[in-house]
Computed example of a mutant assay.
Amino acid sequence: MADVKLFGFWSSPFSRRVEMALKLKGVEYEYIEEDINNKSPLLLKYNPIHKKVPVLLHNGKPIAESLIIIEYIDEVWEGPSILPQDPYERAMARFWVKLLDEIKGEEREKNKDEAKVHLKFLESEINGKKFFGGDTIGLVDLAANFIAHWFRVISESVGLELMTEDKFPNLRKWVDEYTNSSFVKENLPDKDKMVGFYMTRYQAPGGTKCFPKV
C-alpha cells in the first residue's frame, strides 16, 4: 500500500477539501493535525516556502497547495473523476476554481463589492445544476466548500453576511444540496466548534475576519 500522509488543520477549508478528495477516491491515509500557532518541524520541512497546510506526503514526496494536491490525487488514484474528462470542461473547472480563490482573497481584504460581483457569475453557472460538477461532486464543488460551510459559520459568528438568499438563490440552493449530502456532512468540521474558534480569533487583539492562513 502506498504511504500517504496529510498534514492539515481541523477548521481549514483547504485541508478539508483535500481530505474529501482522498475519500472520494477511496485512498487510505494518515491524518496529522497541525497546531497553527506552533507548526511542526515536519510541516516546515515539507512546505518551506509557504509554511502552511495542507501538505500531502505520498511515498515520502511532499505536494503543497490544496488544488494542486487534488489534481494530483485525481491523476494518481483510480475511482470517481474529480476533474472533468473533457478538455474544455476541465479548463472551465480550473477557471471557476481560480475565481473562487479570488473571492477568498477579496473576503480577506474586505472588498465585499467585488466578491459579490464574482459570486453573481457563480450564481449563473450553478443555475439548473445539482452540483458544479453536474450530478456528482467535482473539483469546483470541493473548491467552493468554504462558501457552503465557512461563509455561514463566519456570518453567524461576526455578522458578516455576504451571500444572502434573495440575491443568490441558486448558490443557496447549491449550498443546501451540497451540505445535505451524506458524504459532505461526514467531512465538514463541527459548526459549534468552528463558531467558538472564530469568535475567539476575531475577539483577540489584532484579530481579523478572514480564513486562517495556516
Rank of each mutant, 00 (worst) to 15 (best):
V53A: 03
P54H: 07
V27T: 05
T136Y: 15
K110P: 07
G207K: 03
N187L: 10
Y31A: 13
D35V: 08
P189R: 03
P54T: 09
R201I: 08
E125T: 12
I70S: 00
M163L: 14
I147K: 01
F211R: 00
I70L: 04
E177R: 15
W77G: 00
K5Q: 13
M20T: 02
Y72C: 04
P205N: 09
F7L: 15
D190K: 07
S15H: 06
W77L: 02
L171W: 10
S124H: 10
E109D: 13
D74W: 09
V214F: 14
V195W: 01
F168S: 02
E186A: 12
E114H: 13
N145H: 11
I137Q: 00
K167S: 15
K129T: 09
P87V: 11
S15F: 04
I147D: 01
K52M: 07
P62G: 03
H118Y: 15
E102W: 14
H58L: 07
P84L: 03
K191F: 06
D192V: 11
D192C: 08
V140L: 05
I68C: 09
D166L: 13
K209N: 07
L24N: 03
S155V: 08
V117T: 15
N111S: 11
P189D: 01
L83Q: 02
D141T: 00
T164E: 14
V55C: 08
Y88N: 09
V97R: 00
M20Q: 02
L57E: 10
K98S: 14
R201C: 02
D101V: 10
E177I: 14
S66P: 02
F183E: 02
L99N: 11
G79H: 02
E75K: 13
N145C: 13
K213Q: 13
N170W: 05
D192S: 12
D113Q: 14
L6M: 12
L22Y: 05
G128K: 09
E28F: 15
P62Y: 03
K98Q: 14
N111L: 10
K112R: 14
F14W: 12
K5S: 05
F131R: 02
I32D: 04
F132H: 04
F197A: 04
I63L: 08
I32V: 15
V27I: 11
G128S: 11
E107L: 14
N127H: 11
I69A: 08
K5N: 05
I70A: 01
P62L: 01
N59G: 13
N38F: 08
I32S: 05
V158E: 02
A148E: 04
K191S: 00
F9T: 03
P169I: 12
F14N: 04
L6Y: 06
G159A: 12
K209C: 07
L43M: 12
V158S: 02
M1E: 12
D86I: 04
W77V: 00
P169G: 11
S15Q: 09
Q203Y: 03
